[in-house]
């Protein structure tokens, strides 16, 4: 491993990644320490939702659903009360609204109300499904962090990989990167990533899945999956492997650093249950996209094996 570099010596992308990780870690800490900041962020979001038109309130589903609820009601009470006009004329308008528009708006309101309720039901159902397939595995990770690929996994992968660029997903502090040439990692937790960045490793803070899905097809030589990502459900694992295979293209390598579930502490074993797959299961999933797969023992803390697949 190379010596840590000073800011001035770091290449542009590594320098920016390091400062980004520090900034995100500092923001998280400030939010924890100062509840006022989190409250202000919510107020900002709400204030914008109040002035923006429907559909322009950003990606927050909850805000969009609030909007749907508010807009669902068609108000037929024409705003004529404060406008000048003859009393009898206003009365006639009100009667007209009552006899005709009211009839139509009641039907529309009923329709909108059903739509809004359906959207809420869909939202609830989607949340439940996401938790079942393991999208929320990062939450478990906060309590019982999944072991990440370490130096032993890195060495094993280095034996198999050619000259292409290697991407380590959920890389932790980047221990695997120390054994790999032309490699970089993506880690969700800025505090964890900072340790690796400070050690001079090419680590970026971000969502590993988003990063993987944003890669162009065939632009990576090998993808190493580790950390919380190897605790996903079988369905999510298949999708994950498929995405990694697209990023690698034919001849590339997809590897998974698999946790040894038998070495979990009692509390973790109980709370995490069956979460995570055995090396043989990963082998079977990888077999769906690979010409050959191999499971090799590794010495990294908490890991059972590295399953390596060479894509067909």
């Amino acid at each position: 491993m190379s010596d840590p570099l000073s800011d001035e010596q770091l290449p542009d992308d590594r320098f920016a990644a390091r400062i980004q990780a520090e900034v995100m870690a500092a923001a998280e800490e400030r939010r924890r320490e100062d509840p006022k900041l989190a409250r202000i962020e919510r107020e900002i979001e709400r204030a914008w939702a109040d002035v923006a038109p429907p559909g322009a309130v950003g990606p927050t589903e909850e805000l969009l659903l609030d909007r749907v609820d508010r807009l669902a009601l068609v108000d037929v009470d024409a705003p004529i009360g404060t406008k000048p006009g003859v009393k009898q004329v206003k009365g006639a308008i009100r009667k007209g609204i009552y006899w005709y528009l009211r009839y139509m708006s009641d039907q529309l309101n009923a329709f909108h109300n059903v739509q809004a309720r359906l959207l809420r039901r869909f939202d609830d159902r989607l949340s439940r499904l996401e938790s079942v397939i393991g999208v929320d595995s990062a939450v478990d990770d906060l309590v019982y962090p999944a072991p990440t690929a370490g130096a032993s996994s890195g060495r094993r992968l280095a034996d198999a990989v050619g000259s292409g660029r290697v991407l380590v997903l959920a890389a932790g502090a980047g221990a695997a990167l120390t054994e790999l040439d032309n490699a970089y990692g993506v880690e969700r937790d800025p505090q964890v990533a900072l340790a690796g960045i400070d050690a001079g490793l090419d680590l970026r803070v971000g969502d590993p899945l988003e990063h993987l899905c944003g890669l162009e097809a065939g632009t990576i030589g090998a993808v190493l999956i580790g950390g919380a990502l190897q605790r996903v459900s079988p369905a999510a694992a298949i999708a994950l492997v498929a995405s990694a295979a697209v990023a690698c293209g034919p001849g590339g390598i997809v590897a998974v650093a698999v946790e040894d579930r038998s070495r979990r502490a009692d509390a973790a074993a109980e709370l995490l249950g069956d979460r995570g797959l055995a090396p043989t299961t990963w082998g079977a999933i990888l077999g769906g996209v690979a010409a050959s797969t191999e499971s090799v023992k590794v010495d990294d803390d908490g890991l059972e094996a590295l399953v390596v697949a060479r894509l067909s």
């Binding site: 290449p11 542009d12 992308d13 920016a16 980004q20 500092a26 923001a27 400030r30 202000i40 962020e41």
Partner: peptide, 23 residues
């Protein structure tokens, strides 16, 4: 475009951008 010469953020929540500016 930034090419490593800007502080590029993966998250633009107000607290993160404010922290970046402060830094």
């Amino acid at each position: 475009t930034a090419g490593g010469a800007a502080l590029v953020l993966a998250d633009k929540s107000p607290a993160v951008v404010a922290e970046a500016i402060a830094r």
